[in-house]
Simulated scan of single mutants.
Amino acid sequence: MLRSFEQLRATARADLLIAADDEHAALAGSGHYATPWHWHDCLMFILPSQGTVELKHEDQREGTWLSQDRFAVVPSNRAHETRAAIGAHRHVALYVTGAILRRLDREAGSLSEFYRRTRTTTVVRRTATVRALQALSLRNGRSAYGNSGVKHSLTSALLVQCIAEVMAGEVMGSATHGEHGMALVEDLKEYLTQHADEQIPLDALAERFGISRRHITRLFREGTGFSVGEFQMRIRLQTARELLGGTDLPVGEIAFRVGFESGAALAHAMRRSDGRSPSDIRKLLARQIKI
């Protein structure tokens, strides 16, 4: 089934369309995502930002796993299908017409190496620059990043950076089953770090990431050496130490900010971990700064 550039741009749901013009369109995908065999009259970049996506294509029908450290380029008129793996996922799909590639070839320099590398479906290592541009393009809300003009500029920059990395970056293979698991662990670590001040039951994590409590517990222990609770406690104490050393906030306020019920509860946890009270740690850090 052909899905043309015009169809993709015109029929995209408003909540999925990030930015579009006559030459490129950026769409977000998430949840229980699956698209059966089809092809486009335009080139596609598919970039996971959480979880993994399985890509099957004419040259590798058994499937290629894409995780956050790699993205794929599918040439126009190449049949493929995509689906999200088990667990929560998000991705960005960039659809690119020949017109914009020809314009970039004229204005930015030869794309001959890009064309050579993308004669067939190609998987490329994703750098921190691509990841940052992708994250910014997915931001919503009332901030500047939610402005349509800014989003168009960000997706244009993302496209140019992806092209540059195809030409100069590392061509990769499919993610292994183990790498798929580690990608999930990284997502869990990031989520727990961002919500370290909250009590997050395993059931809530299982529902959010779409896998069982048992699977989360096993994967997280294998990937970090800690249980979910131990990891979250380490993040809380680390943040508390940073606040003790870098601010004059009262211990009770710091305790509240990092998820403890009281200064006494924070002090108890710190003594168990370091053998020192919050005031001892604050004095020690102050001496180290003077030195």
Rank of each mutant, 00 (worst) to 15 (best):
R102K: 15
S76G: 12
S110D: 15
E81D: 10
A72V: 03
A79N: 08
Y95H: 10
D69L: 02
F71T: 01
T64Y: 01
R78T: 11
T82Q: 08
L101E: 05
L94D: 02
G63M: 04
R70S: 11
A99Q: 14
W65M: 10
A93H: 08
V74W: 04
E62V: 00
A84S: 15
Q60A: 12
L55T: 10
R90H: 11
L55G: 07
H89I: 02
H91R: 07
H57P: 00
D59Y: 10
H89D: 01
V96C: 06
V74C: 03
L104K: 11
A99G: 07
R61S: 06
A88R: 06
A108I: 06
G63H: 03
S112V: 15
R90E: 13
A85V: 09
R103Y: 08
A93R: 05
R106H: 14
R106Q: 15
L101W: 02
S110N: 14
H57G: 01
E54H: 06
V73P: 06
R61Y: 00
A108P: 01
D69M: 00
H80K: 07
F71L: 04
D59E: 14
V73R: 06
A108M: 14
L55Q: 08
A108W: 12
H57F: 11
L66D: 00
A88G: 07
R78A: 07
H91A: 13
Q68N: 12
A79L: 11
A88V: 03
T64N: 03
G98C: 09
R61D: 07
A84D: 07
L104G: 10
A85N: 13
A88N: 07
E62L: 01
E58N: 04
S76N: 08
G109N: 05
L111S: 14
L94P: 01
R103I: 04
V92R: 06
A85S: 13
L66Q: 01
L104S: 09
L66F: 02
E58M: 05
A88L: 06
E54N: 08
A79V: 09
R78W: 05
W65Q: 01
L94Y: 03
H89T: 09
A85T: 14
G109P: 02
T97H: 05
L66E: 03
A108G: 08
R102N: 14
T82I: 14
L101D: 06
S110F: 15
A93F: 02
A108L: 15
R103C: 04
K56N: 02
R61F: 00
K56F: 04
Y95V: 02
V74D: 03
R78N: 02
S112K: 15
G98S: 14
S67G: 09
T82E: 09
G87I: 02
I100K: 09
L55W: 05
I100R: 11
R78I: 13
R78S: 06
E54Y: 10
V96K: 05
H57I: 05
K56G: 00
T97S: 09
D105A: 14
A93L: 06
E107A: 13
Q68S: 12
E54L: 15
R90M: 09
G98H: 11
E58R: 08
L104A: 12
R61H: 04
E58V: 08
Q60G: 04
V96Q: 05
D105G: 12
D69G: 07
D69N: 10
N77D: 12
R70H: 06
A93S: 15
G109W: 08
G63W: 01
D59I: 00
A79P: 05
T97F: 02
